[in-house]
Design a binder for these strands. Structure first.
Lengths: 249, 249
DNA sequence: CAGTGGTCTAGACCACAGG
DNA sequence: CTGTGGTCTAGACCACTGG
């Protein structure tokens, strides 16, 4: 009966014939994007959702478990199902791959160097999927660990989704949580392209190293829950005492 | 009844009280390691496994689906469940993160520079989890894409698990498939530590670049299905036309 | 205690592959 | 046609949380 059962209440608009549990996944995600449930809030129980959607509890369960694996939701036995928040230690490191060579992972503090509104260059516009010269926010930061300046970030945000950011009294260290709470933009996926470069004079100065030292360089494209590109950033990191950590499985 | 049902035939030895589906996962994995089913072979159907293990079909299904997500198995509707093989395009790229900047992903050909048996240095021994001076294989390779030498690899293997490798007539390009078919070592997870370095004289010569150019450098520790460290490698890659690609989600 | 998610089962029916 | 996995349902019982 997959995809052909119209006894449910999920609004199978258009021609997409998906299994019910996939429809539930999409529907729940959409409701989160529309803020029916805000980050940290509890969803109704499986049985309530099942009756609301007109499917069985097992089908709802399968969808919620998939979304939990995708870190869109958190589930706790005895407590309930909650919209995932970009807070708490695991979430903070989820998208932060840089580690000091001989230390435990630690989040560096950050220092805003500048925050300006600019017109998107051709490259930035293409990355963000917007038109050239559209307004973008450019945030430059420097991050420090154990008193050592270790990395520099140029962060581009589409102004449309982050309108008013220039009026924020303070830009917190944990940007992705900030995006989520202040602009309803939940970071869902990132794609990093890593290269090795020679430090420019300016970067070397800001990092207190000699020009000519090698740096880990990477560009990152960030997608939100609704699959929009919401951030493009270029990071340079000292490579003497730090590395970029990746696990494949 | 989770973990307390001894009506099953899974041999809950020791004190591990795991949910049945977890026990099935472990059991199936173990049977694959022991080569009851070889890579590419078909497993019995869900119902057959269920009756063999003394659990219900739904429980087997849950376990097999988890193992499929972990890429230990492949399932095809109408066909059956198969032990995953490190062959076929997706599997080849699963652990190969290097991409030419403006091209589609492509696997570079490889050229063996040397294959020697050595005594593990302190560092290599520690990485592989063996004693210093244990016998290890050292395989040096150079890989080429579009006629351009792009990367160098120093690959260390514990000789115990790869005994006889020095007598192999040829070392294929696709090493992980080779490990699997010839030594029953299935690569399951890798951990890469990426840095930026300046090319040494030797590396520059082998890569046909100038000494002093920046290189993407990374060390990789590889774990097998049974969670042993089976490979440690150090890779250097030209950074001018290539990058290391990572997706987080 | 009541309410939540977690585990396990049993069974119906669909979709797909191959002979 | 048969056999496989995929979807969906219904229901029992367990384990955890908070009041």
């Amino acid at each position: 009966m997959a995809g052909t059962d119209f006894g449910n209440k999920l609004g199978t608009s258009g021609l997409a014939f998906l299994p019910l549990y996939k429809q539930v996944e999409k529907h729940v995600t959409q409701l989160i994007v529309e803020q029916r449930w805000k980050p940290g809030e509890m969803l109704p129980s499986e049985f309530q959702l099942a009756s609301e959607f007109g499917v069985s509890q097992g089908t709802v369960r399968k969808a919620l478990n998939t979304l939990t694996d995708a870190k869109v939701l958190n589930r706790k036995q005895g407590l309930g199902t909650f919209v995932a928040e970009h807070t708490g230690t695991p979430a903070l490191y989820r998208f932060f791959p840089l580690v000091a060579d001989d230390h435990n992972p630690e989040l560096p503090v950050s220092e805003v160097l500048s925050l300006t509104i600019e017109q998107a260059s051709k490259d930035v516009a293409q990355q963000l999927g917007i038109k050239t010269r559209t307004k973008v926010v450019l945030l430059k930061r420097r991050r420090t660990l154990n008193g050592e300046h270790c990395l520099l970030e140029d962060i581009y945000l589409p102004y449309k989704e982050f309108a008013g950011i220039e009026k924020e009294p303070e830009i917190p260290h944990t940007l992705y949580h900030f995006y989520q709470t202040n602009f309803n933009q939940t970071v869902h996926k990132t794609e990093d392209k890593i290269k090795a470069v020679i430090a420019s004079k300016e970067d070397a100065k800001l990092l207190s190293i000699k020009a000519g030292e090698p740096l880990i360089w990477f560009s990152r494209l960030t997608k939100s829950l609704n699959d929009q590109n919401i951030e493009y950033r270029v990071t340079r990191c000292r490579s003497d005492n730090y590395h970029y950590l990746v696990n494949f499985d």
